[in-house]
Simulated scan of single mutants.
Amino acid sequence: MRIVRFLSGGTEHLGQLLDDGKSARKIEGTLIAGPATWTVTDKALPIEKLLSPLVPTDILCIGLNYREHAAESGSEIPDNPMLFIKSSNTLNNPFDPIQIPRRSSEVDYEAELCVVIGKTAKHVSRADALNYVLGYTCANDVSARDWQRQKKLGGGQFARGKSFDGFCPLGPCLVTADEIPNPNALRLKTILNGQTMQDHTTGDMIFDVPALIESLSSTMTIKPGTVILTGTPQGVGFARTPPVWMKAGDTVVVEIEKIGRLENPVTAE
C-alpha cells in the first residue's frame, strides 16, 4: 500500500494513494500505532498539497553506510553503525523549498532510503528486525558541509550541520513493508537540475536494514514513528572535483525504486 499525508479542503488527512496520483482513499485512525488501529475507507479525496508521509517521533541517521561512499570520503569502513540525529525542525515536505541558510555556503544533497518503524523496538534480533518496519520512504539528508566538517564551526559533531531548517525532506509516500520484502535490493538516485549525481543500489550498504535495527535497538528504545535514514551512496557534492553545492534556483530529486520521486526546489533563506 502507498500511504500519503496530505491537505484536502484545508484539513490534514492520511490516505491510500490512488492510481491517478491526484487523490487518495481516506484512512481513519492512527498510522503509527499499528495496522489494527487504522482502516482504509471508501471516501476518495483530492490531494491539494502533499505533506511528508508522517511527522517522525525521532529522526535517526546513519553515516558512512555505503562502501563506495566511505571510499570517496577517505574514511575507513566503520566497525559499527555511525549514528547521528537530525532535529525535528528539519522535516520538510515534497515540493517545498530547501532553503540555503545565510550561514552556510556548502549545502549538499544525500539520497537515502528511509525506514519507518511501526512498533516499539528494543533488543530486536536481526532475524526479527523487519517485523518492526511499517514501511519505507525517500529521504534527502541535506547537509551543510562547512558546519559538519570545519572545526571552527563545530565540525565533527554532525548534528549541527545536518539540522538547519528544512534539511530533511521525506516522501512522496510511505510504501508499506509488504511491498518491499528486501529493502537492500533497491536502486536509488539523486538528480540535480536534470543531471544524475548519485546512482547506486541499497545492496552496497555496509550494515543492511536488519543489522541497523538490531544495532540501534540494542542501546535505545526505538519508538513507533521513528524514522531511520540509512546512509547515502557515492556521488555526493563535497567529494566531487570541483565540489558541487546546491544553490538557489536548483531542483533536487531523490528517486528510489518501488517508492517514488521526492522533488524539492532550492531557494535562498
Rank of each mutant, 00 (worst) to 15 (best):
E112K: 08
R187H: 15
R145D: 12
A159T: 12
G74R: 06
G194K: 00
S73W: 14
H200E: 05
G194H: 01
Q195H: 04
D165L: 11
S75P: 00
M82Y: 10
R126A: 10
Y136A: 02
D79N: 15
V142K: 00
Y109V: 08
D96G: 02
L91K: 10
S105T: 14
A139G: 09
V116F: 00
K86F: 00
I180W: 03
S125H: 14
G161I: 06
K162E: 03
V142I: 01
R149H: 08
G135H: 05
R145Y: 13
S125M: 12
A144G: 04
R187T: 08
S104A: 11
R149A: 12
I77T: 14
N193G: 03
I77M: 12
I191C: 03
P94Q: 09
K151F: 13
K119F: 10
Q157Y: 05
S104I: 10
R103E: 04
E72H: 15
L83H: 13
K119H: 00
H123F: 14
K162H: 11
D128V: 10
T176F: 02
Q157G: 10
D79P: 03
I180Q: 07
G194D: 04
A127R: 13
N140H: 09
T137F: 04
N131C: 09
E76Q: 13
M82S: 05
G161S: 09
E179L: 15
C168R: 02
V115E: 08
L188P: 04
M82V: 08
N93R: 01
R187W: 15
T120Y: 01
S143V: 12
F164C: 04
S73Y: 02
D79C: 04
K122Y: 08
G171Y: 02
L192P: 10
L170W: 13
D199N: 15
A177N: 05
I180E: 00
D108F: 01
C138T: 15
C168E: 01
C173P: 03
Q195M: 03
G166L: 01
E179V: 11
A121E: 06
S143I: 06
G74H: 05
Q99R: 12
Q148I: 09
H123R: 12
K119G: 10
P97T: 14
I180C: 08
P101V: 10
